[in-house]
Design a protein around this nucleic acid. Structure first.
Lengths: 132, 132
DNA sequence: TTTAATGTACATGTACAGTATACAAACGAG
DNA sequence: CTCGTTTGTATACTGTACATGTACATTAAA
């Protein structure tokens, strides 16, 4: 009997709002395909129990994702992953902003003592994973 | 007469607190060496004007960086960049957390329409920049 | 038809972000 | 030496966002 990896983890002591951590984590699974159209997400109350937050906090997160076009929410049936066409190409400024946030994130963990080689490894691993 | 690139930019409409954006942006410059020990940062009132926030917001950001050991704040003289030894090696869990946040950040911009090739390029560029 | 499982709505408490305003310290001009 | 100006500091106030508590609406199944 294997304890399978939890669908998602959040860090309540991280200073980042819980509902946004949930949004970010679920969206990552949606983008990388771990969650497919037709899949059902756990009911808000169940996921809330798992994460240690109130179910309305999860409901808020689901609503954000629904507004982004990822989920269809229906009472009694739950939260279902939708088909979602490719997004419109982003404004070029968006890419610059990404680069900046990326640098800032790396600086933050570097300042916190994560080694440069490990950071480099994570960056390259992720890049390689994206190019297939 | 050249308009030199501003020391830092923030996005007031981004939903991320202004003071934290300032902290992140300045810290990035500290980590990558654009700000060296002995350098002076702009006075809180001046930087606040440039960014369009209240000077106490900048002062808060400076204080966070001072508590992290980056800055020495003194009245009348201003905010001076300190010498700062290498941080203690981080807990291994820290690296895992970094990987997660990285994936989430990439998913976010990917969902917003930034192309995979561009993301890959930014990741690799940053990785290469770190290994020297 | 009833019941139970689900998402929704809204009110409330609390913490945080940003601001306004007054203050304290330190350096320079004279 | 004194005074004024430039700097960061302290504190109170306001609005908003986050998380929760509780009641409700909807819908599928028994």
């Amino acid at each position: 009997m294997s304890t399978q990896p939890p669908l998602l983890q959040i860090d309540l002591s991280a200073g980042i709002p819980a509902y946004r951590q949930i949004v970010d984590a679920v969206r990552a699974h949606l983008v990388n395909g771990a969650l497919q159209p037709g899949d059902l997400l756990p009911p808000v109350r169940q996921l809330a129990m798992d994460l240690g937050v109130h179910f309305n906090t999860v409901a808020d997160a689901y609503r954000v994702l629904a507004e982004e076009g990822w989920l269809d929410l229906k009472r009694r049936r739950g939260a279902m992953v939708l088909e979602r066409g490719a997004p419109p190409p982003a404004d070029p400024a968006r890419g610059e902003l990404f680069a900046r946030r990326l640098r800032e994130l790396v600086a933050e963990v570097q300042a916190a003592g994560v080694s440069a080689p490990q950071i480099i490894r994570e960056l390259r691993t992720l890049a390689t994973g994206l190019e297939k």
